[in-house]
């Protein structure tokens, strides 16, 4: 176990380095210079100022020097300053957005697990029945529906037509004057649509996965044994089968993180939620290079850590790995 842990941690550094290298390459593929983009809009900036900006960002140096400089600053957690007019440190801008996106995704994940596990188990136990087919169709519908379209229709229907739910932001106007409980309720009402849309879209992966691992486990000898000794079916499924089927699902947790963060661009833009996705989209449209690079590195870094944690949980839960076969 200790060796496994050490190996994984030793791998972190090269992986992080790879992440920065890819981020840097991607951003520098684009033609044109960031300084040009930043200054071409305001004619007041002289050639001299432009040169100063260029020097400040090291844009007059060769690419590998730029990469080295950037990497050196990253090592001290200096992500540079945003090109946006507010000129704030990128790290600050990202820091205030991360909790919004992460908590939104966490809620979506909880809803997703709450629905997908029962669906997967039910589909496996009633394999090849009408119920199985119906559930399959339902989760695939969730996967196939473009999130932005579903969001649009729901916003129109529940927000504009019926006026049941708010359609944008996280809080109503003037909600800061409310006491805690009404404030929380207000936010919950704002979250119903985005969380609902996000979790419906991700049902398919998890529930299909649960179904197939359940099927695999149900075919094992020890399930036949459990049945043969007269245990009720409910106990066989929920205690003997489910426990073993759930193991691989842990890894899926870590894996679904980049997808969820990536998807946040869409619904944060649509529902006007001030999270990382919205920040990234605005940054990309304004060619705010330091911001875009910062979010790419931090987003990928978060995923890296998430994957590591998921694998560790898996190793802790599965004695075959814990006692180090491989």
């Amino acid at each position: 176990m200790a060796i496994y842990l050490l190996k994984r941690i030793a791998l972190l550094l090269p992986l992080l380095l790879g992440i920065t290298l890819i981020t840097f390459t991607v951003i520098h593929l684009a033609p044109g210079e960031p300084v040009e983009m930043q200054t071409s809009m305001s004619p007041k900036i002289t050639a001299e100022t432009r040169q100063r900006l260029r020097e400040y960002y090291g844009l007059d140096k060769p690419l590998y020097v730029q990469y080295g400089l950037w990497l050196g600053r990253l090592a001290t957690l200096d992500f540079g300053r945003s090109f946006a007019p507010d000129n704030r440190p990128v790290l600050d801008k990202i820091k205030e957005r991360i909790p919004v996106t992460l908590s939104l995704n966490l809620m979506a994940m909880i809803v997703e697990f709450g629905l997908a596990l029962p669906i997967g188990i039910l589909a496996a136990v009633r394999r090849n029945t009408l119920l199985d087919k119906g559930l399959t169709l339902f989760v695939f519908l969730g996967f196939a529906i473009p999130t932005f379209w579903l969001a649009l229709l729901l916003m129109y229907f529940f927000g504009v037509k019926l006026e049941w739910l708010p359609v944008s932001g996280l809080h109503s106007l003037g909600s800061e004057r409310l006491s805690f409980v009404p404030w929380l309720l207000d936010m919950a009402r704002h979250l119903i649509l985005p969380v609902g849309v996000a979790s419906f879209g991700s049902l398919a992966g998890l529930s299909r996965y649960t179904r197939s691992t359940m099927l695999e486990v149900i075919g094992q000898d020890y399930i036949t044994t459990a049945r043969a000794k007269g245990l009720p079916e409910r106990v066989v499924i929920l205690k003997h089968a489910l426990r073993n089927a759930l193991l691989p699902v842990i890894t899926l947790l870590g894996f679904s993180l980049p997808g969820l963060i990536g998807g946040s661009v869409i619904f944060e833009t649509i529902f006007a939620i001030p999270g990382m996705g919205q920040l990234f989209f605005m940054g990309v449209m304004a060619r705010d290079y330091p911001l875009v690079m910062g979010i790419l590195v931090i987003g990928a870094g978060l995923t890296l850590v998430g994957n590591l944690l998921a694998d560790l949980c898996y190793a802790l839960a599965d004695p075959r790995i814990r006692h180090g076969g491989r």
Binding site: L11, P14, L15, G18, I19, I22, V26, I27, L29, A30, P31, F255, P258, G259, I261, G262, G263, V265, I266, F280, F281, V284, M285, R287, V292, I295, L296, G299, A300, G301, T303, L304, N307
Partner: peptide
């Protein structure tokens, strides 16, 4: 390891970053 690295990126972020700049 290259595969591992690429899998860490939120794919849609990468796509957005490149598309918007070209």
């Amino acid at each position: 390891r290259l595969v591992d690295i690429m899998l860490c990126f939120p794919t849609f972020f990468l796509i957005l970053a490149v598309i918007a700049m070209l």
